[in-house]
Design a protein around this nucleic acid. Structure first.
Lengths: 360, 360
DNA sequence: GATTAGCACTCGGAAGATAAGAGTGCTAGC
DNA sequence: GCTAGCACTCTTATCTTCCGAGTGCTAATC
């Protein structure tokens, strides 16, 4: 059933008033805004309460939006805000700062999001499982060489190996051939103990080094598939009146700081078409979030990777402004990581960017 | 002036009682423990108050240790606890887990320390400025090469460079020669625009790539000298009664999360001879910490680097147990990073460890 | 029929009052 | 020098009282 125009205006006013003040909204307060008497508004609010969009903390208090009320607000009533010039500038400036590893970037973006929205925020990028594209071995001196691993997702990992005995340049070359022949194209699960042992047998007098390199390879592949994640601003919760109770705040902060649960819930729930998703109170899967809301935006991280930034706050969250900011940041990240001038993803884009900086 | 034996016992009892309960300690509660009547204890406590070791929240309440009281307790009275078998095992297990980058290690150690002590914790390693020892360029394909940089502190950094035009193997080799000749041995401040420009002139047709690699080099050197740091468990504060007030908790959490200030204060204050330092309430430099205490331990991170782990909590902190745990963890880190079988520091040690694992 | 003014009623929260209890300081006796 | 006893202090918990914001309903008005 469709609500009358006036009911919509009243619901909107209640939600926005409550978002701003955290106090239940009374009929008198709305009389002027809506343009009719408080009695009329009381009648309307009474009906909205009956329909489940508003709630009364107690019989003689104003009204507060219910989760359904927030949902309606978010879906239909709220005005799609845009970020201000100043905010956009601040975001762009942050994002364009010097080149960064993905881990570092996630941590920075988490902080940026949190400071822009004033809510705790997280940022993460999901990665597909990777394999090794090629191995390189750099002979440094007779006790030292460096292993460089190029992965299918175009990340490069390295390791300095320092030995208590000496090796020759040729031995390192042999090792290189061996690994490029046997270990490329495999995901972490496919590197079996058996494969390592058979490689050791083939390695001749460098057999002792095979395990070291293989283990490093597995380490690379494992870390390549886990989502780098940044969480920031958990303490922001404490400035919200709904978390004045330290026990509540503690429980929620623990949940947020331990990002794993957030990640798995993201995987379970899809995204809306516009790359934005709002889950309100009881809509959240995690028990810890049943009294809170999450606003999340996704971005294209290039190379088929998808990333997510999100914000956690009370159900009385400023959805309109938060959604606008998240969308803007997400768009910026997409541009940064997978924009038209960055066809090969993170690494490439950053290189080109850097060159631009220096060619100015 | 030296305190009588009984005064010491009373002060110790007050401190430990208050640490355990967070309630002011009355004379009656101590009568049994000390072995004399409450009146006697009242007299003694009255004198201890006069000397500044105890305080009274109000005239008809028990006593609470003053900062001076805690100080005396920490310096002379407190029993040097040892960690239990179980705790030691847990710490060792955590520390011995798979190889890690220093950043990752700091973050893990911060978490470990926080979970062992139940207080917010941080971990960081100070690094001296580094220079590049050698450059290696790996030619991948005509649009791609990898730069590998070995630093004087034995860390290795790399970067995949993807080009919108093609290069030859020889051009990359030229670049390698050029960089090894001009950029090794320099710290970040010593790489000037002038040097970059003169290298560009010498680079012939690869001049366009010099800026990219030089900028990456600076990036490496900068990140090599900033202290990697892990902060964890800030939300633990909320379980302490002295931070039930959300505003206090918020202020302190903000301070902790933003680790920079902590780092600079560490630099200002030295360490005690045993690698442990306790700063109580007003002894702290930072205004935000005037009502809190910090326990800190340092460790040897190899290669002349020094690291610090620390814990922040109320002045009513369990100094004895926290100090024991920090010392143990710090010792473990020293062993891990600079132990006798790890003369070349972090990288080496981890390699050897890993080999052991696999040779079993 | 929708809107509004008026009014009695409800209920939560603030302010004040009272009571209980923990702990002190002091004095006098051992 | 220690202890028992006692009057006194001050906080905290609990209970009352009171105020006012806000409601729901009814009757009058547009």
């Amino acid at each position: 059933m469709e609500l009358s125009e006036r009911k919509k205006r009243i619901l909107t006013a209640v939600v926005e008033n409550y978002i701003a003040t955290a106090e239940p909204v009374g009929s008198k307060a709305l009389a002027e805004t809506i343009g009719c008497s408080s009695a009329t508004i009381r009648n309307e609010m009474s009906e909205l309460t009956g329909m489940g969009y508003l709630e009364q903390p107690h019989t003689s208090a104003g009204r507060v939006p219910s989760p359904a009320g927030y949902r309606l607000y978010v879906n239909e009533l709220m005005e799609r805000q845009k970020v201000t010039e100043a905010e956009a500038a601040a975001i762009n400036e942050k994002l364009s700062q010097r080149e960064r590893q993905l881990e570092q970037l996630m941590s920075d973006v988490g902080q940026l999001t949190s400071s822009m929205t004033q809510y705790p925020a997280y940022a993460l990028t999901m990665k597909p499982p990777a394999a090794v594209k090629r191995f390189d071995f750099i002979y440094v001196d007779q006790n030292t060489f460096i292993v460089v691993v190029l992965l299918t997702d175009n990340t490069v990992k390295n390791k300095l190996v320092h030995l208590p005995f000496s090796v020759h340049q040729e031995q390192v070359t042999t090792l290189s051939t061996l690994f490029n022949a046997n270990f490329t194209g495999l995901t972490d699960g496919e590197i079996t103990d058996q494969l390592i042992r058979s490689t050791e047998r083939a390695a001749g007098d460098t057999y002792g080094l095979v395990a070291v390199v293989a283990s490093f390879t597995i380490e690379c592949l494992t870390s390549a598939k886990t989502a780098p994640m940044g969480v920031a601003g958990a303490s922001q919760l404490l400035s919200q009146p709904e978390y004045r109770d330290p026990d509540k705040a503690h429980a929620l902060m623990n949940f947020i700081s331990n990002g794993d649960r957030l990640v798995s819930d993201i995987a379970k729930m899809g995204m809306e078409r516009d790359g934005l998703r709002v889950t309100i109170g009881p809509e959240n899967l995690a028990e810890e979030l049943k009294d809170s809301s999450v606003v999340m935006a996704s971005y294209d991280a290039g190379d088929g990777m998808r990333g997510y930034i999100g914000v956690v706050g009370p159900t009385r969250m400023d959805y309109s402004s938060v959604a606008a900011k998240l969308s803007y940041i997400a768009a910026g990240l997409s541009r940064l990581l997978a924009g038209p001038d960055a066809p090969a993803g993170l690494n490439n884009k950053l290189v080109l960017k850097e060159r631009d900086d220096h060619e100015q």
